[in-house]
Amino acid sequence: MMKARGVRDMIKRSIFLAVAMCVGVSAQASERISAVGSTTVLPVMSQAAEVYHQMHPDLTITVSGGGSGVGIASVIQGTAQLGMASRETSPEEQSKLNGNVDNIVIASDAVAVVVSKAVYESGIHQLSIAQIAAIYHGKVKNWKVYGGLDKRILVIDKEASRGTRHVFAKAVLGSSHARAEGASIISGSNNEEQMIVSRSDNAIGMLSNAWLNDKVRGVDVVVNGKAIAPTIDHVRDGSYPIARGLHVLLPHSATAATKDFVQFLLSKEGQKIVKHVGYLPVR
C-alpha cells in the first residue's frame, strides 16, 4: 500500500517536474520569427534556419513559400519578420516599404528555360530569346518548328506574383508583367513547376537552375550566336542573360536576433549553404 503510494507520488512529482521544465524552457527561450516569400530562396532559408537553430536554440525560424510578391507584401503588412524575394522590388512596392527595409542580396542564380526530358532528347538543346518569346506569345505551338517532334508545346507560365516570372518575362518578353498569350497552364511554386515539367513530354517552363534534374532539363540560351548553358559559372561571368539576385528583406525594426540571423546568411557558413543548394554565393 505504502509502496504503491510512494510510486504514485513519484510519478506525480516527475510529471510536475516535466511540466515545469517545459514551461520554464518556453518562458525563457524562444523568439519565433517567420520568413515568407520566394520558393527559390526557400531552400537556402530553411537549411540555414535549421543550422542556426542548432547553434542558437533561442531563435526559431518558420519558413514558408508563397512567392516573391507574397513575401514583399507580408513585410509591408508586417505579417512576416523576414521577406524572401527572387527579384527586385517594384517602384510601387518600394514606395510602400518607405525605405524602412534593407534589401539584402544573399545569392544569385540563373532562371533556366527548362524543357521535359523527351523534348531535350528529341534534339532541342538550345533556343534563342526570340524563339522562346515566340512560344510564349503563342506564335509557335509545335516543337516541330524548332526541329523537335510533331507535338504540341505545353507552355507553362507562372502566377503573376512570382519572382521567377518577373525576371523571365523581363528578359524574354520585354517587361516583367508582359502577357503570355501562348500559355497553356499556370503554375505556382518551383515544386509545382518542376512536377508539371517532369510529368509531361512536351513542356517548356522557367525554373531556377538549382531545380534542374534528369527529367527537367535546362536548354542553352543563344546570345549573339553563342549557346550559353544555365550554369553557376555563366552567372558568375555574367554571360547568361536571365540571371538575378536572391534577396532577403530585413525591416529596420527587426530584433537583434533576426539581424544576427541575416548576418549568418552572409557569413562563410551561410554562404556554404547557398553553394550547397546550387546558387552562386555573393561572398
Binding site: 508563397g66 507574397v70 507584401a73 509591408i76 503573376a160 506574383s161 499556370i186
Partner: peptide
C-alpha cells in the same frame, strides 16, 4: 479538357499578393 480557372482558385492563388 483544357486548363481553366475557377473563382475560388483565383482567390486562393492571388490573395497573398494583393495589397490590402
Amino acid at each position: 479538357l483544357e486548363p481553366a480557372q475557377t473563382l475560388t482558385s483565383r482567390i486562393g492563388r492571388e490573395m497573398g499578393e494583393a495589397a490590402f
